[in-house]
Amino acid sequence: MSISYSDVGENLRKIVITGRLDIPGTDSVAAKLEALTAEPKKAVVVDLSSLRFLASIGIRSLIVCAKAVQQRGGKMALVVGDNSSVTMSLEATGVGDLIPVFKTAAEAERAAVA
């Protein structure tokens, strides 16, 4: 399980999560994810394309972060690539209708900073 980030300019933060966002995986990264999205970057892109599994506890964490970004006037977007497992989890919950989901990082970054 790993979480890393890089900042692009003043307004964009890119976060990459790998491993499994199941119970133990989410427990190990949720606090860091919330801290990374709490900082005053307008746009946040979370790349889930290398995630092996996404459970509801992980989606819950993503929703909490997306709401925090929105409350300070920013946008959060997700990248899933061709990850069918993560896409299935997001579609099952309808979260993709609330947090924009893109196949590529470039699309997500454009949407987040728009």
Binding site: A55, R60, A66, K67, Q70
Partner: peptide, 10 residues
């Protein structure tokens, strides 16, 4: 997103 509640998704 503002209406969304984090729980109850399972």
């Amino acid at each position: 997103l503002a209406e969304a509640r984090p729980g109850g998704l399972g």
